[in-house]
Amino acid sequence: MIPAKFDYVKPASVADAVRALREGGDDAKIIAGGQSLLPVLRLRLAAPSLVIDLGGIAELRGIRDDGDRIAIGAMTSYYDILRDDLVKQHVALLGQATETVADNQVRHRGTLGGALAHADPAGDLGAPALALDAEMVIAGESGTRTVPAAEFFVDYFTTAIGEGEILTEIRFPKYTGWGSHYEKFNRTAQAWSMCAVAVAVRVDGGSIAEARVGLTNMGTTPIRATGVEQALVGQQATAEAIRAAADRATEGTAAPSDADAAADYREHLARVLTGRAVLAAAG
């Protein structure tokens, strides 16, 4: 319950944070909202020598309209995302997934950037970010670079954020007028996703014109269900057509096995939940 000792800095700018990260070396950890880091520290599963708090950097917080995109500062809390009109209008799927994360208290503190950088495959925000082709803006000593979500999630708890780099902003293309749904399946309300499916579809005249599907906890990273997307496009949004497309949900997955769900059950869930999510999104 008591973390191991560490030093603490709270930089006022991204540049200062990057500098602190470089000086802190391997043993430095960034704390964003801290809702994943603090449990890990309390159980002493990690013992960084330096914790760098991004909470003092005002520029990392906020949601703005960036032309054809919605740009969300990495330190924007789940709570702020949930109440934001731009998100509701243009990136509804993100809001729907965010609503299922943990509980109210955690959503007050937890941040989008923190969740994506943490890259827990059971976390709920990777799948929508991936499905919606978000872009991650990453700052380092030599400036900023942009990484598409498809290249961002590398492995279990591993992202394209390099040493000495910080995720500063997440940009989502606008999906104005799309239907969307996040279908989450867990053991109890508090539990992490056993499997979840993020879906956005553009329905045109009763048929599916475009589809984006992402899967949570079906591999070491969030997974894009491209097979399902392809199968959906051009189909009428009927239960039969959607179910047939959803059968392709497990293509390219590597479902983990644990006490809650062995791989075969997870795969089955992925297919069922994908069908339900697409139906709800298209409805």
Binding site: L38, R42, V51, Q105
Partner: peptide
């Protein structure tokens, strides 16, 4: 907030 999940310094 859950005060176990916030550092006093935060």
């Amino acid at each position: 907030v859950k005060s176990c999940s916030v550092l006093a310094v935060q």
